[in-house]
Amino acid sequence: MSDTTTVTARLPKALDVELKKIGKRYRRSRSFLIAEAISGFVDMEKLRQAALEEGRVAIRRGAYAEHDEAEAWARSLGSAEPRPRPDRKRNRAA
């Protein structure tokens, strides 16, 4: 018994053409390439969800930077004088 399943998806024809070209270049089937792409997406989604939960936990314990401080820091990145990263250690008012 195989531990795989079959799924069906509609792709734009242009995407299918590109997928076939890539498969030919790497000597891989479309099925293999699609499985790899979905696997990568699922792995990234797991990481994203874990990061979101980590952020929620940090917010609940009061470890966050104020929005205006974070925005000013982000805008300064790549400039001649980037700001220091905002301090995440905050005490929330009870």
Rank of each mutant, 00 (worst) to 15 (best):
S29C: 05
M1K: 07
K20W: 02
R48D: 06
A93P: 00
S79F: 06
I34G: 00
S39D: 12
L77R: 08
G62C: 03
I38K: 04
R30T: 02
Y64R: 09
R85T: 04
K13E: 07
A74L: 15
A14V: 07
G40T: 09
A72S: 12
R60Q: 15
G78I: 03
V42L: 15
S79P: 01
V7A: 11
T4W: 09
G23T: 03
P82H: 02
A72V: 12
T5K: 13
K46H: 13
A72P: 06
R30V: 04
K24R: 14
L15A: 05
E54C: 10
E54S: 11
T8K: 06
A70M: 13
A35T: 06
A94G: 07
A63C: 08
F32K: 12
F41V: 10
E18W: 03
A35P: 02
D87V: 07
F32A: 14
E69I: 02
S31G: 12
P86G: 04
A63S: 12
P12K: 10
T6R: 11
A80T: 05
R28T: 04
N91G: 03
D43K: 15
E66P: 00
L33Q: 03
A35Q: 08
G23H: 05
R10V: 10
R30W: 07
Y26F: 13
R56S: 04
K24F: 09
G23D: 03
I22R: 09
L77M: 06
G62E: 01
D3F: 09
S39Y: 05
K13Q: 12
R92N: 08
E54T: 09
E36N: 10
P12Y: 06
R28E: 01
A37M: 04
R28K: 15
Y26N: 10
P82I: 09
R61G: 00
D68G: 03
R75E: 09
P86L: 07
K89G: 12
R83F: 02
S29H: 03
I22G: 02
L77T: 02
Y64C: 02
A74K: 11
T5Y: 10
D3I: 07
D3K: 14
S79Y: 01
S2Q: 12
A94E: 08
R28F: 04
Q49W: 00
S31K: 07
R56A: 09
A51F: 01
A58D: 10
T4H: 14
R27D: 12
R75H: 08
E66A: 13
K46Y: 09
D68R: 13
R25F: 10
R56Q: 11
E53G: 01
A9L: 14
K21A: 11
S29V: 01
P82Q: 08
